[in-house]
Design a protein around this nucleic acid. Structure first.
Lengths: 155, 155
DNA sequence: TATGATCACTTGCATGTCTCAAGTAATATT
DNA sequence: AATATTACTTGAGACATGCAAGTGATCATA
């Protein structure tokens, strides 16, 4: 999909990459749920098809939004993390979250987190950005304990 | 497309409505280019098909993002304007604009406007919101002169 | 009042994209 | 050595999109 660039409008350019039903959900999983592996994205409630997921990951990587590396602890796994450019999409996700919450059933979402996103947008963005940076710098989460791995430069 | 709600996640809910290649471009036309009529959306550089446009306008109206009214000056025309809820999507469009500009050729976009969007986000949003409100309240732009029509309540 | 143009769509068909289910290669575990 | 897991790929069918042409309502002009 979205093969050719349709125009030079920056919104159209964004939409050539992000304008489908799945791409931004993958980024959401990375930012809000700290998911990093193929099977973790597959496990998301919405149920993306594996070929669609593979396609989106390739496209995001080619666009420089995410990067891919082999997991040193388990050679089968590929770890996907946001690049600096990908991190700049966090405001977008926050806005989508706030906007969609008004359209959908509010029971579905912790009102406190939503209110924080709406009323303290900047600090929310900073919070998630820092969390991504932290998990990116280190070894990611330990997949058994789901605790942060050894930080970069630690003994 | 996007028939059923996939999950209660607000981002997924947003994407059920906005997650395609055209819907946000229609909203962009409304917000940044003050377009209000079917043929104006058709004239956008990206070249949306008429059936796709008709479908998106119906879906946006059903979702309460835009409203539709007969043009009192020309009964053939339907005028599409943002609702209050639609206006709340303006931050989203600004974010998409700023983000996409880094991906695309910067020659394509007035650097001054872009810098303003990035560095003075709140006032940019206010500016476009007020402009939408103004055109919504009055008669819209005069289609011959492209000047604002008579404001509401004027003699 | 008749004629033609414009506007907002709709229809039918070809093409493209996505989903679902199943399969495969590489690596890890037992 | 046998089995499980991970990250994919493949193929068929469903669904969405693009294109060209057509429709009815309304307007502009003679």
């Amino acid at each position: 999909m979205n093969r050719r660039r349709r125009s030079d409008c920056p919104i159209a350019i964004s939409l050539d990459l992000l304008g489908d039903r799945w791409t931004l959900l993958v980024l959401r999983d990375m930012v809000f749920y700290q998911r990093q592996y193929f099977h973790e994205f597959m496990d998301a409630v919405e149920g993306i098809a594996s070929n669609t997921l593979a396609d989106r990951l390739v496209r995001l990587e080619r666009a420089g939004v995410i990067s891919k590396e082999r997991d040193p602890k388990d050679g089968r796994r590929r770890r996907y993390v946001l690049t600096d450019y990908g991190i700049e999409a966090i405001p977008l996700l926050v806005d989508l979250n706030v906007w969609g919450a008004k359209l959908g059933p509010d029971r579905a979402y912790p009102a406190s987190r939503l209110a924080r996103m709406r009323d303290h947008r900047e600090s929310t963005i900073r919070h998630y950005r820092d969390r991504v940076l932290a998990s990116r710098g280190g070894e990611g989460l330990d997949q058994r304990t789901l605790e942060p791995g050894v930080p970069k430069g630690a003994p």
